[in-house]
Design a protein around this nucleic acid. Structure first.
Length: 279
DNA sequence: GGAATTTGTTAGGTCGATCG
DNA sequence: CGATCGACCTAACAAATTCC
């Protein structure tokens, strides 16, 4: 279904953890009244709603005339696309991220590309990448706390892998922020094609159009960077699947706090520079 | 409070495109 | 023309949630 197809791109580049039925229903209701939502959370949702309609002009024209049942049916198809793309990318980057790290320098101890159990803070190099900026990975007490999981990093306590060369400058939070090479590689993996991300396999050419081209994407979005960061983070952790609460406290809240941080008008200039760098 | 259903995840495909 | 790539799909299953 073409709606499932479009849904794949919505999750990757517009908003990943949205309840699309809720967004569309709410958006239509707001448009019908003409009031701008007062609450910040609602305003964010409304912006996402508008971004979806901008991406799908035919839906924009027709949506107001649809019944709630029709909207629910459309939303379910978009949601299916969004969810399945996320799941495909999680699967791909589980292996991909380990390849990026190994291309840089072989991981020691070895990390199996298909397994999660040896990842996370227990691994010296993956642990360092995941180490939040409020902690010092070289400090034994801090390291122990992270390995044992006695403390969970709060919002905006970013992991080190978000920064260029895994280096955080306490004087300037924006120095190298979201300019990490592994993030770029993961971005290429998802939006161009997996082989484009590999430094070591330059001879191999893609045999199909990549996701960016398929969906007519010509520039980087905030949401797509946040999406990739969330996927890389999950690939680095030893997080066991099968746990919904883990996803909520983990990937979803990470995604939301990073998205809100970049969406903050106070950082307008920094974010513009960042997008320019990515493009 | 146990059965039924839904949700979220993974492994393991299919199949058309295109490279060497 | 076989090998491989990569988007997309399906089935299975565990956990969470809802139902009765």
């Amino acid at each position: 279904d073409p709606l499932v197809h479009h849904g794949r791109h919505i999750g990757r580049s517009i908003y990943a953890f949205a309840n699309i039925n809720h967004l569309l229903t709410m958006g239509v209701a707001i448009d019908a009244v003409g009031d701008v939502p007062s609450e910040e959370q609602e305003r964010l949702e409304y912006r996402v709603y508008k971004a979806i309609l901008k991406f799908l002009p035919p839906l924009d024209e027709a949506l107001a005339n649809y019944s709630p049942e029709q909207i629910t049916r459309i939303a379910a198809l978009l949601q299916k696309g969004s969810d399945s793309a996320r799941s495909d990318d999680t699967k791909g980057l589980k292996k991909g991220v380990i390849e990026f790290l190994n291309d840089d320098a072989p991981l020691d101890p070895y990390v199996h590309p298909g397994e999660k159990s040896s990842r996370g803070f227990a691994h010296p190099r993956l642990g360092q990448l995941l180490c939040p900026i409020s902690k010092d990975w070289n400090n034994e007490t801090h390291r122990k706390e992270l390995i044992e999981g006695t403390q969970t990093p709060g919002p905006e306590d970013w992991p080190l892998f978000l920064f260029e060369n895994q280096e955080f400058n306490r004087e300037d939070v924006w120095a190298g922020f979201l300019k990490n090479e592994y993030l770029v590689q993961a971005y290429l993996w998802v939006f161009i094609c997996p082989t484009a991300a590999r430094k070591s396999k330059k001879s191999i050419k893609a045999t199909k159009q990549g996701n960016a081209q398929i969906h007519g994407m010509t520039s980087v979005t905030i949401a797509s960077i946040v999406y990739i960061a969330t996927q890389v983070r999950f690939a680095l952790t030893n997080a066991e699947p099968f746990s919904r609460s883990d996803r909520v406290t983990d990937s979803q809240s990470f995604y939301q706090s990073l998205y809100r941080f970049l969406d903050n008008p106070d950082y307008h200039e920094e974010v513009d520079d960042l997008l320019k760098w990515w493009n």
